[in-house]
Design a protein around this nucleic acid. Structure first.
Length: 350
DNA sequence: CAATCGCTTCACT
DNA sequence: CTAACGAGTGAAGCGATTG
């Protein structure tokens, strides 16, 4: 793993919305998952810095966000548009002739192994300027040794920054930071680390390897390496999808199979659209139910053969969702396909 | 023993 | 300070099963 240029878009969905609706720029607003009519049932995906000033955060329920800033503007997220913008960013990055990994819709890692730090940093800043000039979008660039540390350098520079973190500086950069800043450590792992007395990355680096392995499994040794400045990840040019799914919270909680089946049909159609776009066939189907008490369960089935049929997907997921019916009503249902193969230009599959 | 299956857990936006 | 309230997408890990 060599030098990496990491590009992370600043408040990406919100920045896209500012392009669409210039008049909201400067006012606090947020992009959420639910339509306007039922927005309090959804969560905030992202918001601009004006809204963040009032304590609004991504992942926060919209009801709470609106307590903090009642007159905040609310917009329903427009994923199709964001995906389009993301592709345009990717095109800009590809012009530089280096391998690019799409880490997420708004994060990209560029393999700059052929460059030295100064050259990579210059290139990163140039890319940043180009994205801003061509698309009108702000971003932050981080350059370091390995994907993970380039991303962390990037996090440090947000928003609208550029950070160079050379390999020799990584241990010092890491040591005082809270463990939560390590990519891959979320609320659960953080809590567990706290409970064994580890709060900073420096403390994690010094922790006993076998203890981490016992407590956290393979993730533990991975984290131990990272906290010691060792990143074994590679840049993956084009990532194959492992699964494709759609899920939706229903208008009201129900066990009515007529309602649920309709939902399953429409989710299945959405999954097949995505599947077609990527020319995949599926062999595994999973149905998911979230209940009124917020617990959830899934049920899955592997088919005899690969398929690209919407009808099969619908009938299998309807069977599976029936096995998930309990006395607790369902508030959300989902359909997911996995075990995918590329079916581009392939003969017919059952 | 390795691959597969069914399912849970977790992270991130 | 930290709960409140709680969407959608996807990857990875794990124990059991199977060949």
């Amino acid at each position: 793993m060599g030098i990496v240029i990491f590009i992370d878009m600043d408040y990406f969905f919100a920045a896209c919305e500012e392009l669409h609706h210039p008049e909201i720029k400067g006012k606090p607003f947020a992009v959420g998952t639910a339509p306007e009519a039922s927005k309090i049932r959804g969560v905030i995906q992202t918001c601009n810095y004006e809204a963040r000033a009032f304590g609004v955060r991504s992942g926060m329920s919209t009801a709470i966000a609106l307590q903090k800033k009642p007159d905040m503007i609310y917009l329903e997220s427009d994923d199709v548009y964001y995906e389009e913008v993301s592709k345009r960013i990717l095109e800009i990055l590809k012009r530089y002739g280096m391998a690019v990994e799409e880490c997420s819709i708004d994060e990209f890692a560029i393999d700059a192994a052929a460059l030295d730090y100064e050259k990579a940093f210059e290139t990163g800043k140039r890319i940043k300027g180009e994205i801003n000039a061509d698309l009108g979008l702000p971003c932050t660039v981080g350059v370091s040794f390995g994907k993970t540390f380039a991303k962390m350098a990037c996090d440090d520079g947000k928003p609208n920054g550029a950070v160079l973190l050379k390999e020799a500086e990584i241990p010092k950069f890491l040591s005082a930071k809270e463990v939560r800043k390590l990519p891959g450590i979320g609320p659960k792992t953080e809590e567990k680390l706290h409970s064994i007395g580890i709060r900073t990355i420096g403390e994690l680096a010094k922790a006993d390897t076998s203890m981490l392995l016992a407590e956290f499994g393979s993730i533990g040794s991975e984290l131990h390496n990272l906290s010691n400045g060792v990143d074994n990840s590679k840049i993956i040019d084009s990532q194959e999808a492992v699964s494709i799914g759609r899920e939706r919270t229903m208008e009201s909680e129900t066990n009515d199979l007529a309602v649920i089946d309709m939902e399953i049909d429409s989710l299945s159609d959405a999954v097949v659209v995505e599947l077609k776009k990527k020319s995949y066939s599926y062999k595994n189907v999973t149905a998911k139910a979230r209940y009124s008490d917020f617990t959830f369960r899934i049920k899955s089935r592997t088919l005899q053969n690969y398929s690209d049929s919407p009808a099969i997907l619908k009938s299998v997921s309807k069977q599976l969702i029936r096995e998930l019916i309990t006395s607790k009503k369902m508030r959300k249902v989902g359909v997911r396909v996995s075990t995918l193969i590329s079916s581009k230009g392939q003969n017919r599959l059952l």
